[in-house]
Design a protein around this nucleic acid. Structure first.
Lengths: 299, 299
DNA sequence: TCACCTCATATCAAAATGATATACTAAATA
DNA sequence: TATTTAGTATATCATTTTGATATGAGGTGA
């Protein structure tokens, strides 16, 4: 029992070449080894596979029957090796990322641009969602890794690596121009209507905690469903809000937005890469993750 | 290059078992060998295939990709081994035989009955035709071997083994009752109308030669297309004919047939098994051929 | 007859494998 | 907290298999 599969490879080549000598050349081996291997295979299978002659070796009916299976099998293996080799060199492969709004704009998109330029063959699926939802996608295997903002609320089965710190700043629209240029206390600011993400998000939780630390209650007057709705709401003077400083980097985003200065520093946050501890990344995913981590540093 | 396929077998089992230890048991091997083999495979393929833990080893994304191919390949190989093993034990297989009339009734049918009883799984195709046609079928690969009567007219690329000698006897119908019981000369007999196989057959050639040896011309008055038409023609008193003695073995064949005694012995003939020298027989065909040869001996 | 081609055999060094003992790790358990 | 357990990793050595070379035997074709 348990026939050496390397013998089958030799059988495969011998059958294909119709000659032990030629098979030996194709396998970078020598003819006596082929003779010996085929003989061993025939002994193990219990039947003759080749008729040898001074012209070469041709298959017996049993040999031909076997060859049909072996050829199919080896074409499978060769296809597998080929695909693996493409994956390995990042000519193929696919990555699935669950990413929160801030992480998407603040980190992923610019890195992805670079990655795509380097490895155009890798398919990328991006699921843009809130931090808890991104973590849930990761947990259920729908994403290879997640890029989210702290606090992540992950459990023991996951691992988070901070990649980029960012601070949030308070901003308001032109209707609140009176606040411009002054250093405000949080208590002062709390008198104004607040625009924030909805209560189910980690961001909301974070601000609730921060306000509580200063003896205040965080009760937004306007709640947005996604982070990218906040700046437009501020622009339309719906209230005062907190946005990641990096959202204000582009000139067009600063249009009709007033940055406010607070005595109390809003809690520092990070964009971090979260992976499941019990699952390893594909080569493509690992490459992208490493590229992301190389951008490490605060804003 | 050229990865050992035995490593793939180990990979296959390790992946299926989810553990190097269990794979080792399934392969009747030991765990350190599995560890070593997988490590070698990973080195050769250039990527990690398993994530090891104290709970076992699970596939990486690349490992899973490879596994799909390897599993398909090995199922092929296993199917091939299974089929070969069935063939080998004669539970399956097929044989194609080209056989002349005399060989069919005189040898093949009784042996085939026995063969079929022993190996009911083997499919048998019989092509019943004249000797030259049987040889032609063999030559073109339509038959595994031929069972024909001498003279065979085969060339160097074939080999004939005599299995059973038989002699032909002269017979006539009841209308020629005057010949019964006497010992005739061939010259006497040649005066009567002759029934024979048609001129294209080896049998015809044989009798032409025999008559010539005795200074006579063999010119049949009635020609039959196949051997089994001769006895009925004799019965209907179309003339005198030569039939293999073994055609007269069964009682019902002797009905209204008179056996004649000749001074000159008709040429001795044989049923023989013809094979192509450059092609080997399948296991099933070889078994039947051996069974046929065991019946060796004259009538 | 002679080169030339095939597979078969003999032999030996080198490499791979099987086997064992043991270390290390993390999780479950007392 | 200590212990057991179930898994992988490493080291080592005898055994087996493989790679390589030289050589033989038997056909084929010039």
């Amino acid at each position: 029992m348990n026939i050496s599969y390397d013998y089958y490879r030799i059988f495969y080549y011998a059958a294909k070449c119709g000659s032990f000598t030629h098979a030996a050349k194709a396998l970078l081996n020598n003819q006596p080894n082929i003779t010996r291997a085929i003989k061993a295979l025939e002994r193990e299978l219990g039947c003759t596979l080749f008729v040898r002659s001074n012209k070469g070796a041709i298959l017996t009916p049993e040999g031909e029957k076997l060859y049909r299976y072996i050829a199919a099998a080896f074409q499978q293996i060769e296809a597998g090796e080929a695909e693996l080799s493409l994956d390995k060199t990042l000519q193929k492969g696919s990555i699935s990322i669950a990413v929160s709004e801030v992480a998407l704009h603040g980190l992923l998109l610019p890195v992805l641009e670079e990655f795509r330029r380097s490895f155009p063959g890798v398919r990328i699926r991006i699921s843009n969602c809130s931090t808890p939802r991104a973590i849930s996608e990761l947990k259920h295997g729908a994403a290879d890794f997640a890029l989210v903002t702290t606090p992540t609320g992950i459990k023991e089965d996951m691992k988070a690596v901070n990649i980029r710190h960012f601070s949030s700043v308070a901003v308001c629209g032109t209707a609140y121009a009176e606040l411009k240029g002054r250093v405000l206390t949080l208590r002062e600011l709390a008198e104004y209507p607040i625009v924030s993400l909805d209560a189910k998000t980690k961001t909301h939780e974070l601000y609730t905690g921060w306000f509580a630390e200063h003896g205040l209650v965080f009760s937004p007057d306007v709640e947005a469903a996604t982070a990218d709705q906040i700046l437009p709401m501020i622009r339309h003077n719906l209230g005062i809000g907190f946005v990641p400083e990096l959202f204000l980097e582009k000139e067009q985003e600063k249009e009709r937005i007033i940055r406010l200065w607070l005595q109390e520093q809003p809690p520092a946050r990070s964009i971090c890469l979260v992976t499941k501890k019990d699952r390893s990344l594909s080569i493509a995913a690992r490459e992208l993750a490493e590229m992301l981590c190389r951008k490490e540093g605060s804003e």
